[in-house]
């Protein structure tokens, strides 16, 4: 990877961080409603894995912490922010909200609020790919908490049984909402839990994007070439609460501080600076540019966009003008 790409990656992670922080502000200003689950701390996971996949070609699905997966898949951040503001110009026309971003034009197949719900959908995308005969793969990003749902076991079994081209990426941030993994799960190493289903699996650091990319490349290649499932566990940590309404009472300040020292942006920035690819002032400029872009283009677009019309409330319950062969 050359210096330009490395700087681009750092920028993408920093953009993700600032985007999410700006969402938190907008939430506090009550511009964004509902539940808001933010991604700071985990940026290297979505960005590193998708860097080694083919966004726009491969199908991506995730849970409710979905903003960055959507943007890295190719969604216009303006459409993402407008969705959070509930606007008609949002990626889901204001009907979805933070947890339900969608953009089929770049094959981002959505964020979903039921923990574990996307497992079978991802396998279903892989089934469709298998039937159509393309070289796409399905990529399913979920947290460690999802692995205690029945859909995890049921889907692993069928994905392996039917040799479906799906990559399961487990972002293990050590907590299912506010319950520590060891208090909810006997086997805390998630990649070991797919062994009975004979799915190849590995575990790696999720904070160092170079490590993530290296493992993701193997995982993506496996799925794409062998047309089989693979399970990749990334060890990560969210630096903010589960959602905006998190009390934080379930983990110590020490623990959060320790992980903050393994901030994926700091790790990568230090590496680029040490290699003389990036200077201190480059980073500051990058940060300023990003914050200006977010404020002047993205948030502004969201603020200035129109609300959906109440007259259209019942639109999209069913497909408008769908086939009615009985009328022929």
């Amino acid at each position: 990877m050359d210096a330009t790409d490395q700087k681009r990656l750092l920028r993408e992670m920093l953009f993700a961080r600032r985007f999410e922080e700006r969402c938190a502000e907008a939430y506090q200003e009550r511009q964004i409603g509902g539940f808001l689950h933010l991604y700071p701390g985990q940026e290297a996971c979505a960005i590193g894995v998708l860097e080694k996949a083919r966004p726009g070609h491969d199908y991506v699905i995730t849970g409710y912490r979905d903003h960055i997966h959507a943007i890295k898949s190719g969604m216009d951040p303006k459409a993402a922010m407008a969705e959070l503001y509930g606007k008609e110009t949002g990626c889901s026309r204001g009907r979805g909200g933070s947890m339900h971003l969608f953009d089929p034009t770049c094959r981002f197949m959505g964020g979903y609020a039921l923990v574990g719900g996307p497992f079978p959908l991802a396998a279903g995308f892989a089934k469709a790919i298998q039937m159509k005969g393309g070289d796409e793969i399905a990529i399913c990003f979920l947290g460690d908490g999802a692995n205690n749902q029945g859909t995890f076991h049921e889907t692993m079994n069928m994905a392996s049984l039917w040799q479906l081209p799906v990559l399961f990426v487990c972002e293990n941030n050590l907590y299912g909402i506010g319950t520590a993994i060891e208090r909810a799960t006997v086997e805390t190493s998630q990649y070991l839990r797919v062994a009975p289903y004979k799915i190849p699996a590995s575990q790696c650091d999720g904070q160092d994007i170079d490590v993530v990319m290296s493992e993701a490349e193997k995982a993506v290649t496996h799925v794409r070439e062998k047309r089989q499932p693979y399970f990749l566990e990334l060890m990560t940590y969210r630096l903010r609460g589960h959602s905006m309404s998190d009390s934080g009472a379930y983990r110590s300040r020490d623990e959060v501080e320790q992980w903050a020292r393994r901030d994926p942006i700091s790790i990568y920035r230090a590496r680029l600076e040490a290699a003389n690819i990036l200077a201190e002032e480059d980073f500051q400029k990058m940060d300023t540019d990003i914050q200006n872009e977010i404020e002047n283009e993205i948030v502004r677009f969201a603020m200035e966009s129109p609300e959906p019309r109440v007259e259209d409330l019942e639109r999209y319950v069913y497909v408008d003008g769908g086939p009615k062969p009985w009328l022929k």
């Binding site: 199908y59 719900g117 079978p120 396998a123 279903g124 995308f125 469709a128 029945g150 069928m158």
Partner: peptide, 26 residues
């Protein structure tokens, strides 16, 4: 067997696999 699929007894997830496939036009 690709088009007439005997599933395991996993109603929720094979339903979800059908739903996912439908979302891609199957």
């Amino acid at each position: 067997e690709q088009r007439v699929i005997d599933t395991p007894i996993s109603e929720n997830s094979y339903t979800g696999i059908g739903v996912g496939a439908a979302m891609l036009g199957c």
